[in-house]
Design a protein around this nucleic acid. Sequence first.
DNA 1: ATTCTAACA
DNA 2: TGTTAGCA
Length: 127
Amino acid sequence: MRIGELARRTGVTPRALRYYEEQGLLTPERRPSGYREYGDRDVDAVHGIRTLLAAGLNSAAIAEILPGLPLPGQRQAGPTCPELLDGLARERARITRQMDELAAARAILDAIMGAEAPSEVIRTPRA
DNA sequence: ATTCTAACA
DNA sequence: TGTTAGCA
């Protein structure tokens, strides 16, 4: 598929898709026309990239672990060299701390909202 | 109509 | 990242 379809199927703009390639996150084939040709696997790859990006990982970190991304359809993440394994552990720790910060922020909001139960549904907004 | 590269009121 | 210009 070409960039337009991948964009449609992932909700990511072609601009971002080209940027991911520039960052080494995606390596689509090229048609004689120069048009990028993506595979179905790239749809899942893009979703994974978005998730990792949203979690705060930089493109460099994502590019390194991309070949090990647990894509739906594959058994599991394949082999990962010890060097990167340490880096991943760091990212994981960072994300854990990030989760704690988010939990703290949510607690503040809960207090302000007078929420008794954290999983309570949002009340009707007042005037 | 779609994609490509390059560049920026 | 959006967006635009000028091509193919």
